[in-house]
């Protein structure tokens, strides 16, 4: 059936047919496949269709090779993404990630153009930062500058980190993935809860997850499980010193995303990315 060979040749397999189409079959076996195909027209059709697929895919997509290179890709390839003075327009999906893509690059822009031109908060907001935002800002200011010990447990032990913090906080906590926003998890730590924050004699501890973008900018996500149930709140923004904080409450869990380095819009993007994962 396959050409009459009756030596101990390994039988023909689907893998051989694939390799035949892709030019990856050893020369010695090619004749065998050809003889088989000559005797099996349906199989020959199938193989012809595969070959046609390869050709059509090339025809369909090879044009991309000649398209002019977008500058943003050239910059990224040279490892200098974010060096441009202004973030490039970067359509992305989902939409929150589009804005978040600027978050890391937003460092220079934010510090130079954002806050310093508008240093003043509205008087009403001053001093009104609730405990959650204030504690988050303090924790951020304390740990984010740490070079050698920014976290207690590193992202390389993420499963352990999350399990440990969940156990200590007495509720399931999660470290959202912020890669789409340009931030990778550095790790996390356990912190004492706010004494008497909600009238609780022994407040449960809180957690801090730290993230860092390629430029070295850090943001921290502060997670507190000892919050009185307030349903779900909208995003709120506070500043404590030079730390900006977006925070929200979901039932009994309070979250606060803090940064001292990126502007408010960039921080909002990162906070939104986290929010969407934590409150799907």
């Amino acid at each position: 059936m396959s050409g009459g060979d009756d030596k101990a040749v390994p039988p023909l397999t689907e893998a051989d047919l694939l390799a035949y189409v892709d030019g990856q079959l050893p020369e010695a076996r090619r004749g065998e496949v050809e003889a088989y195909l000559a005797a099996h027209s349906e199989e020959a059709e199938r193989i012809a269709a595969w070959r046609h697929q390869n050709q059509e895919l090339r025809a369909l997509y090879d044009g991309v090779l000649d398209e002019p290179l977008p500058e943003r890709l050239r910059e990224a390839a040279e490892g200098r993404a974010g060096e441009s003075a202004a973030p490039l327009v970067r359509p992305r999906w989902p939409s929150y990630a589009r804005a978040a893509g600027y978050a890391c690059a937003g460092l220079a822009v934010g510090v130079l153009a954002g806050w310093q031109l508008q240093p003043a908060h509205t008087p009403a907001a001053l001093g009104a930062a609730p405990g959650l935002a204030r504690s988050a800002a303090v924790a951020h200011a304390t740990y984010s500058p740490e070079v050698r010990h920014p976290v207690e447990v590193g992202a390389d032990q993420e499963a352990h980190l999350v399990a440990w913090l969940s156990k200590r906080l007495g509720a399931q906590v999660r470290a959202p993935r912020l890669e789409a926003a340009g931030y990778s998890l550095v790790g996390g730590r356990l912190l004492p809860g706010e004494a008497g924050a909600e009238g609780s004699p022994t407040p449960p501890p809180v957690a801090q997850f730290m993230y860092q973008c390629k430029a070295g900018t850090r943001v921290t996500l502060y997670v507190s499980t000892g919050v009185a149930d307030q349903g779900e709140t909208a995003f709120r923004y506070e500043r404590e010193g030079n730390v900006g904080v977006f925070y929200w409450i979901d039932r009994t869990q309070g979250y606060a995303m803090s940064s001292a380095d990126i502007d408010k819009d960039a921080l909002l993007s990162v906070a939104t990315a986290a929010y969407k994962q934590l409150n799907p």
Binding site: L60, Y61, L65, E67, L69, P70, L73, A77, R92
Partner: peptide
């Protein structure tokens, strides 16, 4: 290698902007 990455990405995700992302 960018052009080749782009070609593959375009075929993989379909849409040009998302492929370049």
């Amino acid at each position: 290698l960018i052009p080749r990455l782009r070609r593959y990405a375009r075929a993989l995700v379909g849409d040009r902007a998302r492929a370049d992302d």
